[in-house]
Every structure is written in structure tokens, then in C-alpha cells.
Nucleic acid binder design. Structure first.
Length: 576
RNA sequence: GCACCCGUAGCUCAAUUGGAUAGAGCAUCGGUCUACGGAACCGAAGGUUACUGGUUCGAAUCCAGUCGGGUGUACCA
């Protein structure tokens, strides 16, 4: 077993073991964290001050008792007392050096599999199949994909589920369009574009107040659900085209799903869901509909409409039941726009009353993408910007930079670099920010290739590869026989501390459901590497032992960058 | 009206959930090129964390109120 396992966890265990009388060990442990300023050491334990307050004793006295009692060896010596009662921990350089060598030799990335892996269902992307994906879909897709990879990397069992919108009223609109305004030649040439046109047509008519279309579309939806032969046949005809179009985008983005169980899959279960919920007295009739009143909102949660049709609330309940029965997950994450917050609060409340009170249901909400005018992001023509054209734009911007900077690469290599850099820029722009507030879409920021961007991380990776190729060294030989590491220079030590933090950062990102914790970490790591690169010659180090030590640090940095970027769904290239 | 979310540097965003002097990127200004990739590095400037009060060793974070913005609010998803 490796030495370098979750440093934070080990320090917490050590401090937890010496929790003073009258204190809560869990609270005391969780007050141990990485410092935000290196002058306070590498980690700090902040639990003494809060505890001293409740025990009504002097915090510094308490801190000194803890400092005397705690045994942090071999990671670190006794902590230092500072300020009102902080305990600052500085890792032993020698221990770090051994741990890093061990990481390099065998145990990278240093993650210890959990004693009890959790099963986590992640519901993300979930587009309507009837229309092309637009920028609004990118957040759910990219964030969900990243969370899935992070959980998996930590050793949990992950089910990625694309809950396709393949059965709702948007399909009724398409059916109406097909029957009233289809262009068969256009459909033959590009089925998805024609379906999208029909959808938009129906939507425009409804939006401009044409009630006849609204009613007609609803009728088509109802007929589809009721098993109407013609509508079912059309559904079967359209679906493969829709799915193929989605597949193309997912392939390009590197996104995979374990299951793609859309709304249509749950259709046969809906009637019995309503029956069961009603029989248990959870649902009741109101204004002709079957609804559940919850404390969460004033409006009820509708599970059967007045006209007898089911809606997405019904589907979502059926989905919870199916997921529970099929995978028995501990956690289900819904990576969905924050505007559906009320819906999920109601859904979760109903599900708990229905008996699903063991599974942790979480709405991983995110803000809406806005244009520069602070309105939902649209093109000049008023359409949402297509996802595909956004990706193309990013790749072509990246291509310009590659052409300017790397004339020595051949066409094919440049195209490859542009794709990796361009897509990376888009994904990173989204992942590096995970606030609930809406955010302003900014081409310049999305396509930026300096500063805190994926390009910066990819560039750091490529520079490291360049060192190895220039020195004609294969990092794998280094990994077979790890050299002794030296961390005398602050830049070397700074990199070492960061590399060892990877497992705890991933734990934190998973616990908080925030990929931006990972992007912040990687940017900080790349930054530390750039400093190191300026200040510490590698190939021309003062001695071969120093050179080997630095090569080891370089390789670990590169591995960490690559691994971390992979968890964000972003690739690296050796030359760019 | 009610509910939820938000308000941090000129702009876009962080801040390990109550910790030490609130940090990055962009933009601005000034420096660094005879070492491994300048898509870089170092530095400067920029703040009453919307406002007022409260809680305590300690508040951007918690509580109350005020102002401003967003979203949702019975049969779309």
C-alpha cells in the first residue's frame, strides 16, 4: 500500500483522536483544512477556538494541550500555535519526498477506494430530442459528465442516465407540423433540420396566440400516448434520426451514458404510479386533476391532468421508483437548470412521502446563460445559439492561434490541437464557474486561451512533455525506478504539496458537487508549475540527481494535470 | 402578492460553508528573452463584500430589516 494517501484525511484522523474532553470529534476533525496562505504552513486545525468557547476556557491553552497530545508523525512534527488558537501544520519535506516517489512509482493518483462505495445515479443533459441542442444544454451536459467522472474516480458506482425528452408535448408540435407543413424533400436531405423547423413553426404559431395550433398539438400528443397507430409510426420513424444527431454531438464532446431511458420508457408505468400514490392517500382530486399538495409551494404537484394525460411530474416519480428498484442508489443527482427548483422540491417531498426517504435526492442547479444584454442568450435572429456552431466557432478560433504559434506542426496535427483546445476552452469556461446565479455568455471569455483557461493547463502539460522529448527521456522508465526527490527550492516544494492534495480535492469536489473546486486546484497547480519552470532548470540542473528529482516532479505534475483534466472531460496533447 | 436564488475590484468570477491581511482571470500600467515552448513569468494599481443594525475571540458567510436584480408560481418540460 502506498504512503501517499489523502493527507487531509490522515491529519484529521490524528486530530480527531485527541479531541479534548467535551468536544465533538467529527466537528473537531472537520475543522482541519489546508491553509490558504503558505506562511501558516500547509494545513491548519481551527477547532480549538470554537471548542474553547463552549468549554469556557482559554483557547490558546487548549490549543497547546492539543499540540502536545497530537501525533502527526511521520507526516509532520508538532503543530505550531498561532493567533487566537490556530494550530499550524507543516509537512516534513522528507515525508513529502518519500510520498511523491511512491506516487510516481505505483500509487498515482493516490486515491484509496472507499470502504463502502456508493451507487450514484446522475441524471444530466436530458435534451428534448425534437430540437437541436443549443448553448443552454451545455451546462448540464458538461457539469454532469464531470461529476460522473469524479465520482467514478473516487471509486463509487456511477450510473449516467440521459433522461431524454422524447414523449412530451414538444413531440405533439412536431406531429402537428408534419401533418400540416412538412417538406418531404427537406426531410429526406436532413431529417433533424426539418423536424426542428416544424417544431419552431408550431412554437411560433402558439406563441403568437394561435390557439388552434396549441389545441391540435395537444391532441396529437394525446393520440401518441393513447397508442394511435399513425403517430406511433411517425414517432418510430423520427426517433432514430433524433438520436443519431445527439450521438454525433456527444461523441464530439466525449460524453457517454450508461443508460438513456427517456420519458417514453416510463409511459407504461405512469397509470400505476398515480393509482398507487392515490391509494396511499398522498394524492387527491382537485379541479379535475389528480394532485399532491406539498408544503414547498402554493401550487400543487400535478400527476394527472384534467384531460387524463400524465405530465412530467408523473414521469419523474416513475423514474425514481424505477431507479430505486433497479439500482438501489444512495444518491440521485439531477443536473438541471435552477428554474426548475420548485418542481424538484415538490418532487422530492412527494417521493419521500411515497416511501423513498432513504435515497439522497439532489437538484444540482445552475444558472441560466445570458447574453451581453442580460437576457437569455439568443442570436440576432432570436434563436438560441446552436451547440454545434458554438463548438465550431471555438475550434476555428483555436485553429487561428495554432496556425500562428505552431507553423512547424502539420495540417493534421494542427486540426487535432484546435479541436482539443477549442472544446477544452468551452468546457472549462462552464466548469470553472458553478454558481447558482445566471452568467453572462461572453464569446471572448469562452474562447479565451490565456489566463485561467483549459488552454493554460494544456500548455503547462505540453511544456512538460517537451522537456521529456528534448531530453530524450521516457517518463515510464522514471516511474519504474523513482529517483530520490529533493524539495529544497520553494517552487519544488510548492508543487509537491499540491500534487499530494489531489485526492482530498476530489473528495471535496464530490461532496460539494462542484467541479470548479477541481478547476481551481488545477489552475493553481499549473501556476505553480509555471513558476517552477521559470526558476528551476530541469535538464540543465546542477547535478544528475537534482535533474532526476525535477524530472520526477515534472512527470507527477503532468500526470496530475492530465488526470484532472480528464475528470473535466478535457483532453491534453503533447505538442500544441 | 407569495416562494426560492443572487448582489464581492472597471468587467467576468473565487473564497475549503464562521477563520488569520477577501483572492484569481480579463482590461490598465510597469518590468523579465544567451537555460527545458513568450499560449509564459515577476510586479503595481484597483474593495466600506448593495445598505443598516445584531450575534462573538473572529462575519462576504449566520439573524433581522431596507434597497436593487433574477427566477418560479394549476394541468409545457
Amino acid at each position: 500500500m502506498g504512503l501517499a494517501v489523502n493527507v487531509l484525511e490522515r491529519l484529521r484522523t490524528a486530530f480527531g483522536a485527541v479531541t479534548p474532553e467535551g468536544g465533538d470529534a467529527d466537528a473537531f476533525k472537520s475543522a482541519v483544512r489546508a491553509t490558504n496562505d503558505p506562511k501558516f504552513g500547509d494545513y491548519q486545525a481551527n477547532g480549538c477556538m470554537a471548542l474553547a468557547k463552549s468549554l469556557k476556557i482559554n483557547p490558546r491553552v487548549l490549543a497547546s494541550q492539543v499540540a502536545d497530545a497530537v501525533d502527526l508523525e511521520p507526516l509532520a512534527g508538532p503543530p505550531e500555535i498561532a493567533g487566537p488558537g490556530f494550530l499550524n501544520v507543516r509537512l516534513h519535506d522528507a515525508w513529502m519526498a518519500r510520498s511523491l516517489a511512491d506516487l510516481l512509482g505505483a500509487s498515482f493518483p493516490g486515491i484509496v477506494p472507499p470502504a463502502q462505495p456508493r451507487t450514484v445515479v446522475i441524471d444530466f443533459s436530458s435534451p428534448n430530442v425534437a430540437k437541436p441542442m443549443h448553448v443552454g444544454h451545455i451546462r448540464s451536459t458538461v457539469i454532469g459528465n464531470s461529476l460522473a467522472r469524479i465520482f467514478k474516480a473516487l471509486g463509487h458506482h456511477v450510473i449516467r442516465d440521459n433522461h431524454l425528452g422524447d414523449w412530451g408535448s414538444q413531440f405533439g408540435m412536431i406531429l402537428w407540423g408534419w401533418k400540416n407543413a412538412r417538406d418531404e424533400a427537406a426531410f429526406a436531405a436532413d431529417p433533424v433540420a426539418e423536424l426542428a423547423r416544424l417544431y419552431r413553426l408550431a412554437q411560433d404559431r402558439i406563441k403568437t396566440g394561435d390557439q388552434s395550433v396549441e389545441v391540435a398539438a395537444r391532441v396529437e400528443t394525446a393520440k401518441l400516448h393513447a397508442g394511435d397507430a399513425e403517430n406511433r409510426a411517425l414517432w418510430n420513424q423520427f426517433m432514430p434520426h433524433c438520436l443519431q444527431a445527439l450521438r454525433k454531438i456527444y461523441d464530439r464532446l466525449g460524453v457517454r451514458f450508461d443508460v438513456e431511458l427517456g420519458e417514453s420508457f416510463y409511459d407504461p408505468m405512469l397509470a400505476s404510479v398515480v393509482e398507487d400514490v392515490s391509494a396511499r392517500g398522498i394524492a387527491e382530486e382537485s379541479e379535475g386533476a389528480i394532485v399532491v399538495f406539498t408544503a414547498e409551494t402554493s401550487a400543487p404537484f400535478i400527476i394527472r391532468k384534467r384531460d387524463g394525460a400524465f405530465n412530467y411530474g408523473t414521469t419523474d416519480l416513475a423514474t425514481i421508483k424505477y431507479r430505486a428498484a433497479t439500482w438501489n442508489p444512495q444518491q440521485i443527482l439531477y443536473v438541471v437548470d435552477h428554474r426548475q427548483g420548485d418542481h424538484f422540491r415538490q418532487l422530492f417531498a412527494v417521493a419521500r412521502r411515497w416511501g423513498y426517504d432513504q435515497v439522497d435526492l439532489e437538484h444540482v442547479a445552475f444558472g441560466t446563460i445570458l447574453g451581453a444584454d442580460r437576457r437569455p442568450f439568443k442570436t440576432r435572429e432570436g434563436d438560441a445559439v446552436g451547440l454545434e456552431s458554438l463548438l465550431d466557432e471555438a475550434v476555428s478560433e483555436a485553429r487561428k492561434v495554432v496556425d500562428a504559434n505552431s507553423p512547424d506542426l502539420d495540417q493534421e496535427a494542427r486540426a487535432r490541437v484546435a479541436e482539443v483546445v477549442g472544446l477544452g476552452a468551452i468546457k472549462y469556461a462552464d466548469l470553472s464557474q458553478n454558481r447558482l446565479s445566471d452568467y453572462v455568455f461572453d464569446w471572448q471569455k469562452m474562447l479565451a486561451m490565456n489566463g485561467n483557461t483549459a488552454t493554460y493547463l494544456q500548455y503547462a502539460y505540453a511544456r512538460i512533455q517537451s522537456i521529456f522529448s528534448k531530453g530524450e527521456i521516457d517518463p515510464r522508465t522514471l516511474r519504474k525506478q523513482p529517483p530520490e526527490l529533493v524539495l529544497n527550492h520553494p517552487a519544488e516544494r510548492g508543487l509537491g504539496v499540491r500534487i499530494l492534495r489531489l485526492p482530498e480535492v476530489l473528495e471535496l469536489a464530490a461532496a460539494e458537487l462542484k467541479p470548479n473546486i477541481l478547476t481551481d486546484y488545477l489552475f493553481d497547480l499549473a501556476n505553480a508549475f509555471s513558476t517552477f519552470f521559470e526558476e528551476c532548470p530541469v535538464l540543465k540542473a546542477e547535478s544528475t540527481s537534482r535533474r532526476d528529482s525535477r524530472l520526477a516532479i515534472c512527470d507527477l505534475t503532468a500526470q496530475t494535470l492530465k488526470f484532472g483534466l480528464e475528470l473535466l472531460g478535457i483532453e491534453v496533447i503533447d505538442r500544441m
